[in-house]
Amino acid sequence: MSLIEQYLPDYGFREVHSCVIMAKPSVVLHAAAAYQPETDPFFRKMIGLRELPMRIGARISDKQTEVVLPFGLHNFTLLEQRDDALVYGLIGRFWRPDFGLVPVSDGQAYRQFNKAGVAKLALVFSAASQGENITRLETETRVFCPDLASRLKFTPYWYLIRPVSGLIRSRILKSIKQDSENS
C-alpha cells in the first residue's frame, strides 16, 4: 500500500506530476523535503493573487493588525516520511478566502479527523529508483470532501486553481530536479 493510500484512500479530486532525475532516491527526497515553494516568484505571485480577497477583507474590516503569513508549505503537516516517500496533510475549507484551515498535529490526528463541510488534502512525494542514480519523482495531490455541501463548494474552486496548481507542481519538480542533480 502506498503512503498516500494510508492517509487518504478515498478522494474525489486528484492531480499527479512526475519527472526523472539523475540522482539517488535518498538525495531526491532530501531535496523534496527541503524545498520551500515560497522561494519561487511565480508561486508567491499566484498565492498573492489567491489571497487578495482575504487581504482586502482584512483591510476593509480594519483587521490588518492580524498579520497572516502568506500560504506555503509551513501550513501543511508532515504526516510521515519514509525512505521512498513523504506525505503532507492539510485540512480546511480551501474555497474560503482564508482557506478555512484546521490545525492538525500529526498523522494520527489527520486520519481521525472527520467533520462535515471540511475537506482533507494529502500531498505526497514518492521517489522510485529507475536504475543506478536515476530516480522517478512523483508528486500526487488528493482531496477528499466528506459531504455534498463541501463537494459543491470545492469543485468550482478546484477547476479554477487546477491549471495554476499544475504549473506550480511542474516548477516544484524542476527545482527539486536541479537541486538533486547539482548536489
Rank of each mutant, 00 (worst) to 15 (best):
V20C: 15
G117M: 03
D106S: 14
P156N: 11
E66W: 04
F154T: 06
D147W: 08
V102L: 02
K177R: 12
C19V: 13
P53Q: 08
R93L: 01
L29K: 07
S150L: 12
N133P: 03
D179L: 12
K45M: 14
G12S: 07
D40V: 01
L123C: 03
G12N: 10
Y11L: 01
E140C: 11
L78D: 08
G12P: 03
P146C: 08
A119S: 12
Y7L: 04
D83R: 10
T77I: 06
Y88W: 09
R93M: 06
L90D: 00
E140R: 11
R96H: 14
Q112H: 12
D83C: 12
D106G: 11
E138T: 13
S26A: 14
P146K: 03
V164S: 04
P9G: 06
V28N: 00
Y88D: 08
L86T: 12
I161D: 00
M46A: 13
K177L: 02
I168L: 12
L152K: 10
K174Y: 10
L121C: 02
P146V: 05
N133D: 15
T39Y: 00
Q130W: 03
F13Y: 15
Q64M: 11
I168W: 09
G131H: 03
T155V: 06
L152S: 03
K153A: 10
L78M: 08
K174V: 00
M1R: 05
Q130F: 10
D179H: 13
S18P: 02
Y7M: 05
N75Q: 05
E138R: 11
E51G: 13
R14S: 09
R59P: 05
P97N: 01
P37H: 00
P146A: 09
L73I: 11
Q6K: 10
S129I: 04
V16K: 02
I4C: 15
N182W: 04
R50S: 15
A23P: 01
I176W: 00
E51I: 04
G72C: 02
L73K: 10
K63I: 12
V87D: 14
T65E: 12
E38P: 00
P53M: 10
R136M: 14
F43M: 02
S183V: 07
Y159E: 01
N114I: 04
F99E: 01
V164I: 09
A33L: 04
S165H: 11
K24N: 01
G166L: 04
Y159D: 01
M22V: 15
S129M: 09
G117I: 04
E15N: 07
P156L: 01
G107I: 13
I56H: 01
V118D: 00
Y159L: 09
R111A: 14
F13H: 08
L78F: 06
D179T: 15
L73A: 10
H30G: 14
N114W: 03
L148Q: 09
R55S: 09
T135M: 02
R14H: 11
L73Y: 05
